[in-house]
Amino acid sequence: MEKNPVTPKLVVIGGSAGSLTVLFQVLPELRPSFPYTLVLVLHRKGGSDSHLVDLLNAKCTAPVIEVEDKEALQIGQIYLAPSDYHLLLEDRATFCLDDDEKIHYSRPSIDVTFESAAHVFGKDTVGILLSGANDDGSEGLARIRAAGGMAIVQDPNSAQMPVMPQVAIDKNHYDYVADIDQIRSYLNQLS
């Protein structure tokens, strides 16, 4: 993966059904103090399934923080979009939450965060779309690419639910298709 010379400041990973197992294979293996901010937007059940952030923290060496309104972004940390809110970037330093209607039956919606990241971080954005059973995320990847950023989709063959990455591939909204090992090494070679 040498094509895109972006130096990312922000990596956003979007996932739905079948994405947690991928994250558990990737996140614990990230090198310490990775030089970007990592954001997770996962389709979750409504209500307060606060276990997810605990579960991620138990597995990851980097701290995982469930975002509160106007939380500050820091490099080398993992941020989880809270259940029942869309996660936006107010500027390069600040998150912002929004409880407007669901997009693709989802709140948080992956498209919403991808689009906001593309708007604020432009070419310094990497979007990664994982396993899932609906069509969220692909439009957002298109916006990241239009802004000069990098769009990666999980290889549908390696996904428990291939629909979501396959939609992005069918629409041609991607730069690279990567299996789980390739996603991990990609994240670890970013500088």
Binding site: L88, D91, D100, S116
Partner: peptide
Amino acid sequence: YSKSSLHRR
């Protein structure tokens, strides 16, 4: 107002 939400709306 928060620019990001306003922008979406």
